[in-house]
């Protein structure tokens, strides 16, 4: 249709009604636009698999940040969470928003002379805090270490001997240290995680965008991400819940140890303390001079993990005097050869 002259002289042969647009240019741009639209459609194609449960309701979209909610708004949110849990698990939960107690700062201490690495704490924690069972999320990692060193790089948390403790090993459970200078809080771009007045660093699961900056920032590997839809059955669900701790999480949010704040803020012990058969785990209010935590900090030799990174943990490791594990005799020459 176009003569050779027209080809050399495109602008003059513009279609009427669209100045500057040739037939060829129009086709080319249409093709690019179609390809772009197809790419966008393909990129959005995973949305085909979305279930109606994953589309947030208007109520969820308009929910305010935890700190900005009035008591009435919080009540409505707790009601919504109860409804959602009941719909999903057919269990009516007790969801509360438990505020920190005044004059309380929680501190944890763990006696590494006594810990035998039995992992009872790990599973008590999972049971209490409604973590996903598949894929598995655990807040506590028990590191097996060689005696005479604190080298987390060569530690092993997959140990599986018939019985523990093993010879020439000691065990160092690691969980969230509830730092007084928490790097995870500093890196959060949306303020979905913060430190409470009683020292617990919490996460608003409805505000978290799942960027995982906090996981990268934590020097203790204490934060966990829900890569998949949490697998939790109704029988496994713990119906005693709090907004900031163990209510069921959604896919794509971070979670971590909260010192079981739904228990500890009403005076109870965290689940891991209650489960420890050796009594290696100690928990309490450091501001109370009569508490066992205050006694440990005054009288025991305590240390914190990775002190040099300056996180100021509220989680202390301590150990007993040499020779107070009587079943591990001192040098036979010293102990009389009979111990």
């Amino acid at each position: 249709m176009n003569g050779p002259n027209d080809r050399q002289d495109e602008p003059q042969a513009a279609a009427p009604g669209s100045p500057g647009m040739t037939r060829r240019g129009f086709i080319r741009k249409s093709a690019v636009a179609a390809a772009g639209a197809a790419a966008v459609a393909a990129a959005l194609s995973p949305l085909r698999n979305i279930s109606p449960d994953h589309i947030p309701t208007l109520e969820q979209l308009l929910q305010k940040h935890y700190k900005e909610m009035t008591p009435e708004e919080m009540k409505a949110v707790l009601e919504r969470i109860s409804r959602e849990v009941e719909k999903r698990y057919a269990v009516r939960p007790q969801v509360a928003d438990i505020k920190p107690m005044t004059g309380v700062e929680f501190v944890y201490a763990l006696n590494i002379s006594r810990c035998i690495g039995c992992r009872r704490c790990v599973h008590a924690c999972v049971k209490e805090n409604n973590q996903s069972r598949s894929p598995e999320i655990q807040y506590i990692r028990v590191l097996k270490m060689e005696k005479g060193s604190i080298d987390v790089e060569t530690s092993d948390h997959h140990y599986d001997p018939p019985t523990v403790p093993e010879h020439e090993s000691y065990y160092m459970p690691v969980q969230c240290h509830q730092c007084a200078n928490p790097p995870c809080v500093k890196v959060c771009p949306v303020e979905a995680t913060w430190q409470e007045p009683d020292g617990i660093t919490v996460i608003d699961y409805d505000w978290c965008i799942g960027c995982r900056y906090c996981e990268a920032a934590c020097p203790y590997w204490a934060r966990r991400f829900n890569f998949a839809e949490p697998g939790l059955t109704a029988e496994e669900l713990n119906p005693n819940m709090a907004y900031l701790s163990n209510r069921p999480r959604a896919v794509g949010v971070m979670e971590k140890c909260t010192y079981c704040l739904h228990r500890t803020r009403v005076g109870r012990m965290p689940a891991c303390v209650e489960a420890c058969p050796t009594g290696s785990r100690k928990f309490g209010n450091v501001l109370d001079p009569k508490s066992e935590i205050a006694y440990i900090l005054r009288h025991k030799r305590v240390f914190v993990l990775k002190q040099e990174v300056g996180t100021l943990p509220r989680f202390f490791y301590y150990f007993d005097e040499r020779g107070s594990r009587y079943h591990e005799p001192l040098d036979p020459a010293v102990s009389g050869g009979d111990a």
Partner: peptide, 17 residues
Amino acid sequence: PAFQAMRPARGPNTLRM
């Protein structure tokens, strides 16, 4: 009186591992 050795609960079976 030595605290008796016991069977450990199983280890982590997490995504990474």
